[in-house]
């Protein structure tokens, strides 16, 4: 199925979880936060939250700012 990760279309397997996606992306999971369709998915729910086709996922971290 197709989802959008940080605005970019990506083909992933059906029923991929948020945690599975982070593993695929190879991001350090403690340093990111994840939103699916503008709703925060807390770390404790990443393993249970299954993605659906056309989901818009945001994977964010902390960067320099004022």
């Amino acid at each position: 199925m197709r989802i959008f990760v940080n605005g970019v279309a990506r083909d992933v397997s059906n029923r991929l979880t948020v945690q599975g996606l982070l593993a695929e992306l190879g991001v350090q999971s403690a340093h990111v936060a994840v939103e699916v369709n503008r709703e925060l998915v807390p770390r404790s729910r990443r393993a249970d939250h299954q993605l659906a086709a056309d989901d818009a996922v945001e994977v964010v971290t902390l960067v320099g700012g004022g």
């Binding site: 940080n6 340093h31 994977v59 964010v60 971290t61 902390l62 960067v63 320099g64 700012g65």
Partner: peptide, 19 residues
Amino acid sequence: VTVAVRRERLIDKEGRNLL
């Protein structure tokens, strides 16, 4: 110290994080 929240760079990731 203040920090901003931005998209993780998923393609051209640098080795080290601000943190």
